[in-house]
Amino acid sequence: MSAAARRALLALAVTGVGAWVLAPIVLIALASFTTRSQLYAWPRGVIPNPWSVETLRFFLQAQGVLQATWHSLVVAGLTIALAILIGAPAGYALSRFRFAGREAFRLAILGTKMFPATILAVPLAVSFIHWGLYDTLLGVAFVHTALALPFAIIITTSVFVGVPFELEEAAMTLGCGRLQAFLRVALPIALPGLAAAAIFTFVLSWNEVFAATILTLRTRTLPALVMNAVGSAGAPADFRFAAGFFMIVPALIIIMVIRRYLLTLWGVTVR
C-alpha cells in the first residue's frame, strides 16, 4: 500500500471514530438550544430555528436541579481534597523510595479497579446505613474518592518522577529539612501536574451516577437526579437534552485543559 493510500485510510478511520464520539454531543447541544415546540414538531431541521435558551432555562428551573448541582459541586470538592491528600503522598512515595512491596502496591492500585461497583452496591449501602453515612454528601464523596484514587496516584507518581530528587537534595544542602525541601521545591514544581489530577478527579466525580444513585435518597447529585428524573419519572425529551448538554460541558472544557498532562502521563510526551 502506498503512503498516500495509507494516510487516506488513517484519515478515514480518524473521521469515523471522531464522528462516532462527536455526533451525539453535537446533536444534544443543538437540541438543547431548540425551543420546546420546535423539538416536538415534525418534520424539523437539525439546526435550531430560532436559537433559544428556553429549553435550558426550563431544565435549570426544574425541581431540585440547582440544589443537585450544588450537591455535585460539594461532592466533587470533597473528592478532590481527599483524593489529592491521600493520592499525592502515595504518588510521592512511589516516585522517590524503593521499598519492599513497591511493585505489589502498584499492582494493587490497579487491582481495585477489578471489582465493579455493582457487586459492592448492596454491602456498601448496608455499611453506610450502619455508619450513618447513607444519604450524605460525605458518603458519596468517600465512594468517589475510592474510585478516583488509582488515577490520582498514577498521575501524581508520574508528576513527582518528573521533579528531579536532586532539586530537593540541593534545597537540603541549602538549609532545608526533608519536609521543607518538599514544600518549598518539589510541591511548587509539581503543582500544575497536581492540578491536572484534581481536574481529572472532578470530571470523574461530576459524571459518576451509580454510587450516587444507590447511596442517596434526598441529597441527590446532579447525575443521580437526572437519572431518576429520566428513569422513574419519565422526564420529557427537552429536559433530557438540556440535562445532557449541561453535564457534558464542564467535562469537555476540562478535558481540553488537561489533555497536555494526560499525554505526558507516563513520562513520555506524545505530540
Binding site: P164, E166, E169, A170, T173, L174, C176, V185, I189
Partner: peptide, 17 residues
C-alpha cells in the same frame, strides 16, 4: 542532616530551582 553541616554543594545537573 545536611542543613546543619556548614556545607554548600554544586550538583552535576546544577539542580537550579
Amino acid at each position: 542532616p545536611p542543613a546543619t553541616r556548614g556545607i554548600a554543594m554544586v550538583f552535576q545537573s546544577y539542580a537550579v530551582f
